[in-house]
Every structure is written in C-alpha cells, then in structure tokens.
Amino acid sequence: MKYADFPLLGRRPFTEFSISGVLEPEPAELGEWTAARWVFERTSVPRERVEWWYHGASRLWFRVRRDTGSDTILGIEPARGEKRT
C-alpha cells in the first residue's frame, strides 16, 4: 500500500484517492486539434506527468506530479489555489 505526504491532509494512503489521468478543461477553441484527437488521444508512455487526484473524504482535488514508469510521487499541490476574484 503506497502513501504520500499530502498538503492539507498529511500522510495518506493512495487508496483514499480516486486517481484521474492528465486532465485539461475543455477549451472553447481546439486550434489545430480535431475533436477526435482532443477526446481520444493519449500519451501512455513511461513519463513524468501531472495528474488530478480526488480525495473523497475531504472533497478536495490535488495536482500530483507522478512518474508513470517508477510510480514515484514528485510533487503534490492542492488544486484550488487562490480564488479568481
């Protein structure tokens, strides 16, 4: 069972989180991307990437930098920083 030190939460097992992949908000315009590439394309090679993790008990999202080859956590920050005022 893997653990990490999470800001705001302290040391927690990964099993308390539902792990999503790399998420981007849907842009208004796709530029040169096609709808199909935007919806389906993935880059599933061993690499460092920023993922979105959701902690159900506190209803908080976190941005987690993880190496998908070695499964090591390289950085974690709460997703909701300062609000857009």
Partner: peptide, 10 residues
C-alpha cells in the same frame, strides 16, 4: 469540484 478547480471559479 474538478471543473471549479480547473477554471479557478469562485
């Protein structure tokens, strides 16, 4: 909660 965080909504 995800969309609110992604778009930094109040």
């Amino acid at each position: 909660e995800l969309y609110a965080a992604e778009l930094a909504l109040d």
